[in-house]
């Protein structure tokens, strides 16, 4: 049961992160295409936002791992 729960958690977290990251990087590339000289600042900002987006899915993954190893139990 906990294996199933962990799989669903990690899978859904990956789905959300994929949607968020695709939006972010699509806009980043669009930004470079419009204004190539802004690449440096845009890259820094994009990486910060990438870290912010990645945080919630990775929290899901971490709790999934804890479930898998039965540190927190059902």
């Amino acid at each position: 049961m906990s294996i199933l729960a962990a799989s669903i958690m990690i899978g859904l977290a990956a789905l959300g992160a994929a949607i968020g990251n695709s939006n972010l990087f699509a806009k980043y590339i669009e930004g470079i295409a419009r204004q190539p000289e802004a690449r440096g600042t845009l890259f820094g900002q994009t990486m910060i936002l990438f870290g912010l987006i990645e945080a919630l899915p990775i929290i899901g993954v971490a709790f999934g791992i804890l479930l898998l190893f039965k540190v927190i139990g059902v």
Partner: peptide, 16 residues
């Protein structure tokens, strides 16, 4: 809570 878990989860998941 999110400030702490953001850091912990990234490093923990990587190590495990």
């Amino acid at each position: 809570a999110t400030h702490a878990m953001r850091l912990w989860a990234n490093i923990f998941a990587g190590e495990v």
